[in-house]
């Protein structure tokens, strides 16, 4: 028991997660794989239902990213295979349709999350991390980065030991940045991550800027370093050399 917990903690710290990507479009699959490898995940790719079926039955992955539309079968059937052989495996469904019935069906069948194409890699990454953390039931729920310490259970952030008073959105935004270190997050991606379907507001982008500004101010006021850098005025990057 102790060994498992130790291994799990090790996995979280060292990002030893193995993720299976089931997506028939090779280009998209490669893009996802590239992004996730960059995030220190261990990744395998399959492009057909039958290959996916085989891999799921034979190997133990932490998570499968499942596209619903496969050339030789549907992702829903694959989800049932997962739940039968690997009930502990986390599943994120990728789909091109907004259809509510698929979403409900998928979540009822035990999928952990559901992403509609087109999605941002940063968002996929953030969701993967959230799910893995929840699934692994670890007692290590702190992320330390620079002068910041994020408590995931309490949803609080300390800067140099001082508790920051962040709004829920500011907290979510900071976490989104920290989960996607050194990556450009466009304003659109941030807005979509934070406000979901409400995001396509015509003028939500100076709004994102306002939130960033507040977040920066709160961090620098507590003596922290501003690591949120604007890129070409199109998005922001959380810069760190960790």
């Amino acid at each position: 028991m102790r060994t498992t917990i130790f291994l799990q903690n090790l996995k979280i710290h060292c990002n030893w997660y193995e993720i299976l990507i089931v997506e028939d479009n090779q280009q998209l699959s490669n893009d996802i794989a590239e992004y996730l490898k960059d995030q220190k995940f261990s990744v395998e790719q399959v492009f057909t239902f039958s290959d996916a079926n085989e891999k799921i039955v034979m190997y133990e992955y932490d998570m499968v990213i499942l596209d619903l539309g496969l050339p030789d079968g549907t992702g829903m059937d694959l989800l049932e295979v997962v739940k039968k052989y690997r009930p502990e495996m986390a599943v994120i469904i990728l789909t091109a349709t907004h259809a509510l019935e698929y979403k409900l069906q998928g979540l009822n069948l035990g999928a952990d999350d559901y992403l509609t194409k087109p999605f941002h890699m940063a968002e996929l990454n953030a969701r993967i991390r959230t799910i893995l953390r929840r699934k692994m039931n670890t007692n290590d729920h702190f992320i330390k980065t620079g002068s910041l310490e994020i408590d995931l259970n309490a949803a609080t952030v300390k800067c140099k030991g001082q508790l920051l008073s962040l709004t829920r959105k500011e907290y979510d935004m900071l976490l989104y940045f920290v989960q996607n270190k050194n990556r450009l997050l466009t304003k659109e991606s941030i807005a979509e991550y934070l406000w979901g379907d409400h995001a396509d507001q015509a003028d939500n982008f100076d709004f994102v800027y306002n939130h960033i500004k507040n977040l920066r101010r709160k961090i620098t006021e507590a003596g922290g370093k501003n690591q949120l850098r604007s890129v070409y005025g199109m998005g922001y990057k959380y810069e760190t050399n960790e």
Binding site: N25, Q27, L28, D31, Y35, K117, P118, M121, S189, V231
Partner: peptide
């Protein structure tokens, strides 16, 4: 349509980085 759009969107994001 959505799959190629995802690819295009992410490639563009990648380029912007």
């Amino acid at each position: 349509l959505q799959t190629p759009l995802t690819i295009m969107q992410n490639k563009a994001e990648h380029l912007l980085s």
